[in-house]
Design a protein around this nucleic acid. Structure first.
Lengths: 138, 138
DNA sequence: CTGAATCCGGCCAGATACTG
DNA sequence: CAGTATCTGGCCGGATTCAG
């Protein structure tokens, strides 16, 4: 992608794809893309407990791969949710900690967690009822 | 996948896959799987304004396909977030409206939207800074 | 230890056509 | 109008390997 590259004859691929952003859900998409993925929430929750190093994070989050942890921390860093500090030791150590905005996000995640807990049983009950009687549209 | 199939000689693939559910983020995953996907939030936001019919929803949410709207409403219905009412008219009409729990979820989504609005600019600024100077690890 | 790079399989979403 | 069925491509996530 050369930056100085201006609209050739590429039959102008739709510049504005499907922008369902007309009223009150504009920034939601971006935030949900961040916290909605598989691992970001877990990283945020873990970092809310205090600064962690790369390996520490990986051990604290069972099942995450190095690749996914790298991508997740990078994206969170790009969005300003966490700060990365490199200690030029040997072996190298990198510390991750939530930025103020990241801490704020952690609070939001905590709210979601509370809501989840409060409704978890109701949701599971609803699913069971739905799965058992397919003809019952509630 | 035959159900009566017990551990052959497949060098025992880990029976407990990746259960990162040990402390406070148990039900979060399920809720995020619901509101984290591409369309559910938009459907909830739209239904928060009042009951809608299928076609109405689709028109209110640019870019969603029939298939995705069907799947989204079905999943939300299975989780008890909305109720479906069929009017045996001609042509048939189906009305969707948020259940009490769905309305509660809408409140949560509103909180997320508020947070998103409050931090949208900061996030974009962070991204711009990140994208322009790759060497700056903040 | 902390990453980057590559390959690859599965799942999800979009497009399309068909039914009641 | 309200859905279902099928095909298909893309993206994401996991495993592995290489580098600083």
């Amino acid at each position: 992608m050369s930056p100085g590259h201006t609209a050739v004859t590429l039959q102008a691929l739709p510049p504005e794809p499907p922008g369902p952003c007309g009223e009150d859900h504009c920034g939601i998409r971006e935030v949900l893309d961040r916290i909605g993925d598989k691992w970001s929430v877990l990283v945020v929750v873990e970092l809310a407990k205090g600064p962690r190093r790369f390996r520490q994070l990986q051990r604290a989050i069972p099942g995450i791969s190095q690749r996914m942890l790298t991508l997740t921390t990078r994206r969170l860093g790009r969005d300003g949710m966490l700060e990365r500090t490199v200690f030029p030791t040997n072996p190298p150590q990198v510390e991750y900690r939530l930025s103020p905005m990241g801490a704020s996000l952690a609070g939001l995640v905590a709210d979601i967690a509370d809501w989840s807990r409060d409704h978890q049983e109701a949701i599971e009950a609803s699913r069971r009822a739905w799965d058992e009687e397919p003809a019952a549209d509630d």
